[in-house]
Design a protein around this nucleic acid. Structure first.
Lengths: 243, 243
DNA sequence: CGGGGGTTTGAGTCCGTTCAAAATACGTGG
DNA sequence: CCACGTATTTTGAACGGACTCAAACCCCCG
């Protein structure tokens, strides 16, 4: 364990396998060296909490491998999964920049490796290289657009349509295409989390899944989904659909 | 008309009455002069469109006075008002930075004055002064947090609670406090737009308003609202409420 | 083999939607 | 200033979807 941790800790960011997909790709030379010196990688098991909503910010994280869930929870225990963090994604930059506590919680959904960047290092890099800030800005803009899209869909689409949309999104990331054009997806989420992402209860989602199977659009077996025709799914989102 | 327009056009940004509330407050000296030279103010009547969803970005706007609505619309005519733009707010920075078409439409909800900043000017300023990018980043982060909050509430709160929450927000901006502790609000929105902001239909909102009046929490007369006790409104959002 | 979390299913109820019509407010032109 | 037409808002009744509560089921893991 100590050995493994040590090995990855010594990895320089300049040779990171997700560097080109991450916000840090705008850095080079000395900046990359500074980043490396302020970074520590840590391995998480599935289901560990990275930070809690309400915690003070203690730097930002970069997903190296695995999968992270970002969620909001309230006092009654209501939990909504807001987005998923994939390798290359940055976590916690918002509370860092606003100088506020974390407004969301983050937890691992699979065994995950995260690189933690010390706050002083981030501040130093932002000052040295303005393009890093612009890169974060692009990320925030993109997330904002996605959030607006989600709000719009929650008003205009049915639960079934929203779930189909979510399935299509997950199919892109987690789906394995098959020679016959069908697709197999291993869902990284429980029914409860899937339900919260489309804004409904897990019981309702269960029934939606039942109807999807009855209609022959998709087959579910635990977290495994088989979609015979991806097009048939996509058609459910077309405007002017009956039945 | 021409005279008035001319007068405001000549206003330097350095003396702008909303400068200190705007993202441009991080600029000074030469930067402010550059900004001024790339800015043109325009007056809009209520209900005019500033840009359409799908339009190419042609620079960004700064609200000088009045009120702007940012919305998404789809082919079926569904319209959702996503947020309001007040004096000092910046519009269109997202599509500018992402180099994409506008993902939302913007329209005036009241007679409004907007300062348009040419794209080259924005690019030039972003390059000269990194703190402008960071300022935009803070704005985007803030909007993202608001969007996440809205998504969370749409899942966990009832229609009535969401409307009460919206009322409280609008009361802050548009409410006039009275000596006896009550408050009068002139709503800047139609029932349809209010309904879309909480994710429901205008008929449903009408009934919610009816119940609010029956419960003595607020009185509605057209776009005028009278709230006897603001605390009574706020209590509706407390967890563990019955009835 | 016995938990225990996650998932499915069931029945009843409530809330929100839909379609329709009436009532009210608003802007325009006479 | 009033009459008129239009848009917005309110109200009604019926329907349907989603929620709640509850129980049964399943599967994974110790």
């Amino acid at each position: 364990m100590a050995k493994i941790k040590c090995q990855v800790d010594q990895c320089a960011c300049s040779v990171c396998h997700v560097l080109q997909r991450s916000d840090w790709r705008v850095l080079a030379g000395d900046d990359l060296a500074i980043l490396s010196s302020g970074v520590a990688m840590r391995h998480y098991r599935a289901g560990e909490t990275i930070y809690w909503m309400g915690d003070a910010n203690r730097g930002i994280h970069c997903v190296s491998s695995g999968l992270v869930g970002v969620r909001k929870i309230d006092a009654e225990g209501n939990s909504v999964l807001l987005r998923l963090g994939y390798p290359g994604d940055t976590l916690g930059y918002r509370s860092f920049l606003m100088g506020s506590e974390h407004k969301t919680s983050a937890e691992t959904l699979e065994p995950t490796a995260l690189c933690h960047v010390r706050p002083e290092t981030v501040a130093q890099l932002l000052e040295r290289n303005p393009s890093l800030g612009l890169q974060f800005l692009r990320r925030a803009s993109d997330e904002l657009e996605q959030a607006h899209h989600a709000i719009f869909q929650s008003v205009t689409l049915s639960n079934r349509q929203r779930f189909v949309h979510l399935l299509l999104v997950l199919a892109r990331r987690h789906g394995r295409p098959r020679p016959d054009g069908s697709r197999t997806i291993r869902l990284p989420l429980s029914r409860g989390d899937l339900a919260s992402m489309i804004g409904t209860r897990h019981e309702t989602l269960s029934r939606i899944i039942g109807r999807l199977e009855a209609d022959g659009v998709a087959n579910f077996s635990g977290r495994l989904v088989h979609v015979p025709k991806l097009d048939a799914l996509a058609e459910e989102l077309e405007p002017g659909m009956a039945a």
